[in-house]
Design a protein around this nucleic acid. Structure first.
Lengths: 230, 230
DNA sequence: AGGCGCTTGTGAAGAGGTGCACAAATCGCG
DNA sequence: CGCGATTTGTGCACCTCTTCACAAGCGCCT
């Protein structure tokens, strides 16, 4: 389930605040989901809450981390040390949640040798040797779109089976390899769509327009993320 | 639909490659989706393809950009010029797709005045004045989690109704305000889960274990993103 | 020890997305 | 002008996810 990390984050926040137990309602509010959904999610991983009390925060954290495979610190290879890659290399949100950026790569010789956050940028040709040496388990692609597929192929060749792709393109990978894509421009475009839709709706208070005009407000608004009302 | 931006990206790539028309199958491959799904999506926005030929690339680009509200260049305010914010400010993927980063803000006085990519970092207190002046329509939050809610409140107060949140926390906003969240660590955690699942599956070729043990492979793997096989 | 209030876990209904398969429509060619 | 190849648009069935509502269970207070 893709919501488990969100629960985990909320649980850590509650633990820091000193809470020992949480009700499904409280945790659901912290994570921004429905309480029934949260209970069903947690029941799916066999978690034991106590009726009448709630869930033990510490125990639940251990459970979820175990399911997510976060008990071991995973080594991440980052390919592409451009604008975005540079920021990712220095992003402390990774280390604080159990991920270690173990190696940086770039194809541009002028960038090789640069030191970022204590790590030296290596040439991408060294990927096979370093990947084995550092036992890389996840690859992050922050290259331009044109280079992304080639990098993905190289990562797959050295045995990486999980890839996080920031390049705006679709990657072809063999079965068994998981790819997640994050495209920052797409996120903005989705917001732009919502802006456009809201503007059209307010401009037409009692939309009696003909069905011929394809109004932005007329199509389904399903984008897998919802705003949380106060 | 959240898939429209992906179609748009694929269409731009096809247009650059010189294609005048595309079949739903071809475009679906480029965007990494099923062809039937793509046809249904396009039909929902009243788009006119020609049977026997396909879709006109240029026309479809105009249609989708119109629906997404990309005909006007939207001004974006970026709050939080830390590691990530710095990269976002310099990310050329925004400008190339119709978004203009119009203002940078930070709460840290030592960062105020710094120039990034031709823009001067302003103090967050100047947000109200600048937001109106630049007619900001989208706010991007790249602050630490603790500051995010406050920034969101400020953005809402100045009339911003679309927020892209990179801080690892849930934002409370009034109805009518759209929030999209991007949490880079969560993406890695989902990949970690897949790694863990794959490792468990290969370790147990014919999983005959008792149902009591909550195997990672036993729970539903639905994370709204799928790998595309070759 | 017993009852009461609170919370979990889950069955069932509802909603929505997905993909197949096929009819309708268009173009090119003889 | 007509036919076949090709491609769009869509009805239908399936399946998953979501949400409500409620029974079962646990702790606390008397």
């Amino acid at each position: 389930m893709a919501r488990l990390p969100e629960y985990l984050r909320a649980l850590h926040a509650l633990a820091d605040a000193g809470h020992e137990t949480v009700s499904s309602e409280g945790l659901a509010n912290s994570a921004g989901v429905n309480s029934a959904k949260l209970r069903k999610d947690l029941s799916h991983l066999g978690s034991y809450g106590t009726r009448g009390v709630g869930y033990d925060v510490g125990l639940l954290i251990d459970q979820i981390e175990s399911v997510l495979g976060l008990t071991q610190c995973r080594a991440v290879a980052l390919v592409g040390v451009g604008n975005l890659g540079h920021a990712l290399a220095g992003y402390d949100g990774f280390a604080s949640r159990g991920f270690r950026i173990a190696a940086l790569f770039d194809a541009d010789p002028s960038r090789v040798g640069e030191e970022i956050n204590g790590l030296v940028v290596r040439h991408v040709d060294e990927l096979p040797r370093v990947a084995v040496q550092e036992s890389i388990s996840i690859g992050v692609i922050a290259t331009p779109a044109l280079a992304a597929q080639g990098v993905a192929d190289q990562l797959v060749a050295v045995g990486v089976t999980s890839i996080l792709n920031f390049a705006p393109c679709v990657l072809s990978v063999p079965e068994g390899v998981d790819v997640r894509k994050v495209d920052l421009a797409i996120e903005l475009q989705i917001l732009s769509f919502h802006e456009h839709r809201k503007a059209s709706l307010t401009a037409l208070p009692a939309a009696g327009g003909s069905a011929l005009t394809a109004l932005p407000g007329g199509l389904a608004v399903t984008d897998n993320q919802e705003a949380i009302g106060t």
